[in-house]
């Protein structure tokens, strides 16, 4: 995979030496393991302490929020909150990743910010379980940090107000974001480069500029989808962009993508294994096709489970009034 990693380098002279490439591109096994470990750790904490919630201090240090005594006392085997399974965690993350795009759209943030926030979010949950830090808080923190890092500053207050959430925790959590590297490479610029290149390539055949434009637009939407899969943690942005462009070409059926790809590779990367690149694009393709967009209905029960992990006393209460009320614990618009 490494040998294809540099594809699209011409467009991003500095990706090769970036922390993004050096530290944040993984193998599928790496990812699986990291998710498993985070889940396991949170589960153990839950068994030992009856809660998983981590409190973040102003300086970004963590401590476990100790449950109140009464909750701890009756924490017998039966009433103890159940931990989330890794699949449930995954679903919840997918839900909030979609929310990130939603919120960014609502604020009309540029795509780059959206992508940066998504990557921060993904990086964060390689280290933590959703049981330890509620994804709603982390989502907003990531958006806030992305705006700041991309020099499109929006005040935390404004951001909080826009989605009717208290903003203080955004600031409380911001320190967490420093744990990862802040400059990330989104595929949009690489995509632009490939589209320009495509235009030159088909120049003599006079591909109409409207066609190219709609091709570019739908490729951007494909990138949006790719950003919600695990692919950004597995492949460099150049390859994500190419995969998006190929999908877009399949929709429009006006451009022979294969022909372009062959020519592009022979021009720029003669030594590149074509098959390897194709394999990567196919993997990305499969990921996008499998991409789920959970609705709040889908994650409702998971969120309820999560709530009792984070706050065991709410678990007790909700058990008591289980049949009485149908309160929803997810209230994001």
């Amino acid at each position: 995979m490494r040998s294809v990693a540099g594809l699209g380098q011409r467009l991003m002279a500095d990706f090769t030496t970036s922390t993004h490439r050096a530290k944040w591109i993984f193998t599928p096994q790496d990812l699986k393991e990291k998710y498993k470990n985070a889940n396991k750790r949170a589960k153990q904490t839950l068994e030992q302490h009856g809660t998983t919630q981590m409190k973040v201090d102003i300086d970004g240090s963590f401590s476990l929020v100790k449950p109140q005594n009464d909750a701890k006392d009756n924490a017998d085997k039966h009433s103890r909150p159940k931990a989330l399974k890794t699949e449930e965690e995954q679903l919840l993350r997918a839900f909030y990743e979609f929310k990130i795009q939603d919120v960014c759209d609502a604020f009309k943030f540029p795509r780059k910010i959206q992508a940066t926030a998504l990557i921060y979010f993904k990086r964060f949950y390689l280290q933590w379980s959703v049981m330890e830090h509620h994804p709603k808080n982390i989502m907003l923190t990531c958006i806030y940090a992305a705006c700041k890092a991309e020099e499109n500053h929006v005040s935390a207050e404004e951001l909080g107000k826009g989605i009717e959430q208290d903003h203080q925790f955004i600031l409380d959590n911001e320190m967490l974001s420093l744990g990862f590297d802040l400059i990330v490479y989104a595929p949009y610029r690489a995509l632009e480069g490939f589209v320009n290149d495509l235009e030159e390539f088909y120049d003599e055949e006079l591909v109409q500029s409207e066609i190219l434009k709609s091709l570019h637009d739908s490729a951007k939407m494909e990138v949006d989808k790719i950003m919600r899969t695990e692919a950004p943690l597995l492949f460099p942005p150049g390859q994500l962009a190419l995969a998006a462009l190929r999908r877009s070409c399949e929709i429009h059926k006006v451009i022979d993508f294969d022909r372009y790809l062959k020519s592009m590779l022979s021009r720029q990367h003669p030594s590149h294994a074509n098959s390897e690149l194709r394999a990567s694009m196919n993997t990305i393709d499969i990921m996008v096709n499998k991409l789920e967009t959970p609705t709040s209905k889908d994650v409702k029960h998971i969120d309820r489970k999560l709530k009792s992990c984070l706050d065991p006393s709410s678990h007790e209460k909700s058990k008591k009034r289980k049949h009485r009320s149908k309160e929803s614990s997810i209230d994001m618009s």
Partner: peptide
């Protein structure tokens, strides 16, 4: 100093961290 600042981590510091991590 961070304190309870309205806009969290100092901008200047953030830029410094962000860029210097990439510039070796």
């Amino acid at each position: 100093r961070l304190g309870k600042q309205k806009e969290g981590v100092n901008f200047t510091a953030l830029r410094e961290i962000k860029l210097l991590k990439e510039l070796k």
